[in-house]
Design a protein around this nucleic acid. Structure first.
Lengths: 200, 200
DNA sequence: TTATTTACGTACCGATTGGTACAAATAAAG
DNA sequence: CTTTATTTGTACCAATCGGTACGTAAATAA
């Protein structure tokens, strides 16, 4: 009974672990690309029958959506933690840049970024979750920038909304570059230099 | 006889126009995404039989490769023309940014960028062409930057190689944003400001 | 006319897709 | 033990995928 002991249950005990399947699905989508991985292949990799997956997730959209939620909970949350930490503004920028450009976990890129770039091919629920994660991420960037501006740790000569959009886009670019095998370190540093330099 | 009158031909005259099919394929890949469009659907849209397409292009890889080449010849070339023009450096940057961020032709984004981000799912020949277009584009950026530096129209306080990589990446980001329905104008302007500002 | 060459349309191939019907298996509840 | 509830495994479904075999239409060459 690998699943939660929520109910002693009446029927045959489940052999499948929802968590295991989510791990397998998340990594498969993450590594090979969301549209390149079939539901069938996930069943094979997780050694689980298809009806079990449908019983647990309802549809392919349900599985991809759950896998993306899993990713948000266990991977993206680390970036949000940095953004919500009470560090100095330049340090937060530095730590976020390092996480995106250097951390070994994002060698394959970012599942969210990959799903977003193919969102038109994703299911309905997954598209909704993508939009939700997008606004959540952008809000977190905006908060950091607003605080940095209030504390005088950032010149703030750029509207907070635009700067947040910019930061979000540059981090996404770095993660996209890593997915392609590039090292985004220098390009990202160059992009983020607009927060350290002043106008002429 | 829609095809070139290269040879009076002996057998039955071709009904299919290679150029027409390439136009249809290019726009289909461009609009819906390269991996979202099947060879079958292209045959339907172009009102051409599958054996004709195979006769002309050999395989799906041959078709996608030819479509990307078509795109390079008729769309990407406009960017290269700007880069190779003998304009002043700031003007060239401005014109390139406008082409990527404002031009109506790139409302669907950029086929090259889309194929590159799904290159692992593309055929062998297509992957090779992607790499070729990539280095061609980066070389063009490097040339412009080197000339701008030589003419004193750009501070050049950044290595030309890195600056070219950066420009290439930012233009790609803008085109990716447009494909997602965003307006990249402000973000791109912010990214390119590193060429106009000086260090503190 | 006859033979040859070429491209066409149809109809098919095996593989794979997302999704499901159904019965055996296995537990608790009566 | 019987009933009921639940999950499993197998085996299937129609649709679509990339790719092809094959006979026919339509042109020139002889």
């Amino acid at each position: 009974m690998p699943e939660a002991p929520s109910k002693p249950g009446r029927g045959r005990p489940p052999k499948m672990s929802k968590e295991d399947v989510l791990d397998v699905a998340m990594n498969a989508y993450w590594e090979d690309g969301p549209t390149a991985v079939s539901l069938n292949s996930i069943c094979q990799r997780a050694v689980v029958s298809k009806p079990s997956v449908y019983n647990a997730f309802g549809s392919e959209d349900g599985l991809t959506c759950a896998a993306l939620e899993h990713y948000g909970q266990f991977v993206m949350v680390k970036m949000l933690e940095i953004l919500h930490s009470k560090d100095r503004f330049p340090n937060i920028i530095k730590r976020v840049a390092h996480l995106a450009a250097q951390d070994a976990q994002h060698q394959k890129g970012c599942l969210f970024v990959k799903m977003r770039s193919e969102k038109s091919q994703m299911g309905e629920k997954t598209q909704t979750l993508i939009a939700h994660l997008e606004s959540m991420s952008r809000d977190a960037f905006a908060t950091v920038l607003a605080e940095g501006k209030a504390n005088g740790e950032w010149a703030g000569n750029i509207p907070v909304e635009l700067a947040a959009h910019y930061l979000h886009a540059q981090i996404g670019l770095a993660l996209d570059q890593r997915a392609r095998g590039e090292d985004p370190t220098e390009v990202l540093a160059m992009a983020l230099s607009v927060f350290e330099f002043t106008e002429t």
